[in-house]
Simulated assay, not measured.
Amino acid sequence: MKGFEYIEEELNQMKAEGTFRPLIPIESDQGAKVTIEGKELIQLSSNNYLGLTTHPRLKLAAVRAADEYGAGTGSVRTIAGTFSMHNDFEEKLAEFKHTEATLVLQSGFTANQAVLASLLTKEDVVISDELNHASIIDGIRLTKAARKIYKHVDLKSLEEALQSTQDYRKRLVVTDGVFSMDGNIAPLPEIVELCEKYDALIMVDDAHASGVLGRNGRGTVDHFDLNGRVHIQVGTLSKAVGVLGGYIASTQAVRDYLIHKGRPFLFSTSHPPAVTAACSEAVDVLLEEPELIEQLWENTRYFKAGLTKLGFDTGHSDTPITPVIVGDEAKAHQLSDKLKEYGVFAQGIAFPTVAKGLARVRTIVTAQHNQTILDEALTAFEKAGKELNII
């Protein structure tokens, strides 16, 4: 169809530069190994940290809920789409997170949009880490509030932003708990202290910390013993929790306000019964099977040590997210392709997801891996890395 020539031109340029990547369909469940194009590969790109996407308890909860309540809800939450299970799950999640209340939305992305677009006005300012997730960036774009960007995890830069914005009604500091591309953890205790010093609100996006950090996977706030000192926690139910959705954990007032003002909540059909029941069961698994988190961290330490020993640059990761930093965009994708050839599925990440010159293959180990599988993966990394003169 005529009219999209400018798009086709850009796509052709991406193909010429080696940065165009097609979607890769997986033909199996999301385990330690997956089937792609009929070939079994070690999965190192999934956010399924604890293996809960295939946990028998979650699968059974989903099947039972669909059988009893149907495939969908047929409405938004504010009209006829709030089932008793939605409220029950939010109460359970609030207790788990040690907050007054929670509100569940369709994704972590929409949760960030709902908070930032709803709670702030032109009288306010949002202060954001420069490497925060795209959903935070887009949420900031939707607000009429002023905005300040501080240097990545730079406390001096943050304090300067706080000092220069004292005339606003409210200041909201926003940070990822765990940064999704580098795997480093925000210095949350120091950030909280600065926010308390300057009477600012603080919001933490715990997408990659939920189910990974803190007691039973409660996140970075619990990891640093900061319960009751962080105003808003946003997280996902789609990564370590293994299902789908996002949540906002805060006060009852914030929950009530977002129910009335949060456009992603107001104008989206509620989660199907199977999703809600599986998410609820996941919280029980986090409480009752802590060995899954222990296994995740044992595998993480083992794999990181192996990559470092081989000579790869893994940046400053403190979590199961371990980037193998290559630099050149095309070469990062070449590494990904070589790994696939040698039995490992690990996706290349390039601009605009990360800055130019910092392309990488991002790896994530899970509780489902074992040392035998990780040794196979390390052998593939060694072979591919040497062939491409990366190590």
Rank of each mutant, 00 (worst) to 15 (best):
I191H: 02
V275Q: 03
F312H: 06
Q233W: 03
P273A: 07
E196G: 10
D138T: 15
D176V: 08
V275Y: 02
T78F: 05
T314Y: 05
N47A: 13
K170H: 14
E387A: 10
F381Q: 06
G81W: 04
F381I: 07
K386N: 11
A207W: 01
E123D: 15
L201T: 10
L244P: 01
P264W: 03
C195W: 00
L388E: 08
G214I: 06
L296N: 01
V275N: 03
A377E: 02
A61W: 00
D138E: 15
L158S: 05
K2Q: 13
T379H: 07
T251L: 09
L41S: 00
L105C: 06
G31C: 06
N112G: 12
G228M: 08
T82I: 10
A282C: 07
Q13P: 01
A65Y: 00
Q233Y: 04
E68F: 07
A101D: 12
T300V: 07
A274S: 13
I42P: 00
E288M: 09
G183H: 08
A114Q: 08
V344T: 05
Y302C: 04
D29K: 08
F381L: 10
V34L: 04
D225M: 10
I79P: 02
A367T: 07
E341H: 02
I140N: 07
L286M: 12
K383C: 05
P189K: 04
E341Y: 03
K148I: 14
E17K: 13
G31H: 03
E130N: 14
T322N: 09
K309V: 05
Q233C: 11
M181I: 10
F303N: 01
D313A: 09
G219N: 05
V344H: 00
Q347K: 10
E8D: 15
K338S: 11
T372S: 15
Q295Y: 04
I185V: 14
Y257P: 02
Q368A: 11
K340Y: 08
R215S: 14
L44N: 01
S336D: 04
A161W: 01
A346P: 00
S270G: 13
H208R: 13
A146M: 08
K148F: 11
Y342S: 03
P25T: 02
I349S: 01
A16H: 10
V174N: 03
E9A: 15
K156P: 06
I373V: 12
G385R: 05
A355S: 14
L335A: 05
G3C: 11
N370W: 07
I36A: 00
E382Q: 14
Y6R: 15
A274I: 02
E329R: 03
P264Q: 08
Q30P: 07
S28C: 08
A62M: 05
F381E: 06
Y69K: 14
F381H: 05
L244W: 10
I185Q: 03
H231T: 12
K309W: 01
E100V: 12
H152D: 13
K356Q: 15
L119W: 00
D154T: 10
A80E: 14
